[in-house]
Amino acid sequence: MTASRMTSEPEAAAGAVARRQNWLAVLARAPVARLEAALDDLPGGRATILAGAVALRRPETGLAMVRGRAGGSGGRFNIGEMTVSRAVVRLAGGEAGVGYVAGRDRHKAELVAVIDALLQTPAHGVALTARLVEPLAAEQAAARSQASRKAAASRVEFFTMVRGE
């Protein structure tokens, strides 16, 4: 095995993990109606796809510890707990999908898990990325940008005057 091949395989795996983390984050913040509509648009529809998915871990709700950093870069500390719902499914083709969402929406966690599994298939991955994940990511980025601009408009600058003695 050549040195270039050895470095490219881990890089490719890291890229695949990063892409999956990205689409899971986007799907977790998406409205349920958009997730359902995306499944309805696929061949067979949502009912057929959900019927063919086997629950490896039924949707359940629990708590997750939220951690923060002092000043954004300091030492980590526990802020508190938040409610999360999760589900794990396996499609007929063997692809497993996971869904973690904030709150108590078990149905949404299951939808995210099914779409995660579908995004890993050659048959649906490209189409779902183009029709669902990329538009949602763009909308979420625009909403974050707008919120940031709104907050920046109300920013107050504090300064200290130095006396010359």
Rank of each mutant, 00 (worst) to 15 (best):
M1S: 13
T2C: 12
T2F: 13
A3M: 09
S4Y: 13
R5P: 05
R5I: 15
M6T: 15
T7P: 14
S8E: 12
E9R: 06
E9K: 13
E9N: 12
P10H: 14
P10M: 06
P10K: 15
A12W: 13
A14L: 12
A16V: 04
V17Q: 15
A18D: 15
R19P: 05
R19Q: 11
R20E: 13
W23Q: 04
W23E: 02
L24V: 01
L24Y: 02
L24N: 07
A25N: 09
V26K: 05
V26D: 02
L27I: 01
A28P: 04
A28C: 03
R29S: 14
A30C: 04
P31H: 12
V32H: 09
V32K: 12
A33S: 14
A33D: 15
R34L: 14
A37M: 05
A38W: 01
D40Y: 06
D41M: 07
L42K: 07
L42V: 01
P43N: 02
G44C: 05
R46L: 10
A47H: 07
I49Y: 00
L50Q: 04
A51N: 10
G52E: 10
G52A: 15
A55W: 07
A55F: 08
A55R: 06
A55S: 10
A55Q: 13
R57M: 12
R58S: 10
R58F: 05
L63P: 09
A64E: 08
V66F: 01
G68Q: 09
G71S: 05
S73P: 05
G74M: 09
R76Y: 09
I79E: 09
G80K: 04
E81R: 14
E81G: 07
E81I: 05
M82K: 12
T83D: 08
V84N: 07
V88K: 10
R90K: 09
L91T: 01
L91S: 04
L91V: 03
A92N: 14
G94Y: 05
G94W: 01
E95L: 07
E95G: 05
E95F: 06
V98T: 11
Y100F: 14
A102I: 15
A102G: 15
G103Y: 04
G103A: 04
D105G: 03
D105E: 09
R106F: 04
R106D: 06
A109E: 00
L111F: 00
V112S: 03
V112W: 01
V114P: 08
D116T: 00
L119H: 00
T121M: 06
T121Y: 03
P122D: 13
A123L: 08
H124N: 10
H124D: 08
G125D: 04
A127F: 02
L128F: 01
A130V: 03
R131W: 02
R131H: 13
L132Q: 02
L132P: 01
V133F: 00
E134H: 08
E134W: 05
E134Y: 01
A137S: 06
A138T: 11
E139V: 03
A141R: 15
R144P: 11
R144W: 08
S145T: 10
Q146G: 09
Q146L: 06
A147L: 12
R149Q: 15
A151R: 13
A153I: 07
S154F: 08
R155S: 12
R155H: 11
V156Q: 14
F159W: 14
F159D: 06
T160I: 15
T160F: 11
T160S: 11
G164K: 08
G164H: 12
E165N: 15
E165M: 07
E165Q: 09
